[in-house]
Computed example of a mutant assay.
Amino acid sequence: MSDLDDQVPTAFDPFAEANAEDSGAGSKEYVHVRVQQRNGRKSLTTVQGLKKEYSYTKILKDLKKEFCCNGTVVQDPDLGQVIQLQGDQRKNVSTFLVQAGIVKKEQLKIHGF
Rank of each mutant, 00 (worst) to 15 (best):
S27R: 04
D13L: 01
Y30W: 11
P9K: 05
Y54A: 03
Q84P: 03
C68G: 04
V103Y: 02
Q84E: 15
S94Q: 11
K28F: 12
F15A: 00
V73D: 08
A11M: 14
D3K: 09
V93M: 01
D22A: 13
Q86V: 02
Y54S: 03
Q99S: 15
D5I: 15
A18G: 02
Q89C: 11
K28L: 13
L97K: 04
Q86E: 10
I83P: 11
V98W: 08
G80Y: 05
K28H: 13
F67C: 06
G24Q: 11
K52Q: 09
V98D: 02
R38T: 05
E53L: 14
A16E: 06
N70A: 04
G112S: 10
N92C: 01
T45R: 00
V93F: 01
D3T: 04
E29D: 13
V98C: 08
A25F: 04
D13H: 07
L44Q: 14
D13K: 06
Q36F: 15
I83T: 11
A20E: 09
S27K: 07
T46S: 06
Y56D: 09
K91N: 11
K58Q: 08
Q36M: 15
S27C: 04
Q84Y: 08
E29A: 15
F67N: 03
G112Y: 10
V31N: 12
G26Q: 03
S94V: 10
T46I: 01
D62R: 15
L63V: 03
Q75C: 12
Q86D: 07
G80H: 09
F67K: 03
K58T: 07
N70P: 00
H32P: 01
F15K: 02
C69T: 15
N19A: 12
R90C: 00
E29T: 10
F15H: 01
L108T: 07
Q99V: 07
K91V: 06
M1R: 12
A25Y: 06
L79I: 06
Q7F: 13
V47L: 05
G24C: 05
F96M: 06
D88P: 04
R38I: 11
P9F: 01
N39G: 10
G24S: 11
P77F: 10
R90L: 00
G40A: 02
L79V: 05
T57R: 14
A20T: 06
A16S: 14
L60M: 08
L63K: 07
K51W: 01
P9H: 02
I110F: 03
I59R: 08
R41M: 11
Y30G: 07
S23A: 06
D62M: 15
N70F: 01
D3R: 07
G40C: 00
E66Q: 11
M1D: 12
G112R: 12
Y30L: 14
K64P: 05
F12V: 13
L79P: 03
Q86S: 06
D62Y: 06
N19F: 12
G112L: 12
K61H: 04
K109A: 06
T45Q: 00
Y54P: 02
V103H: 01
P14F: 10
N39Y: 13
D78F: 00
L63D: 07
S2K: 11
D76A: 08
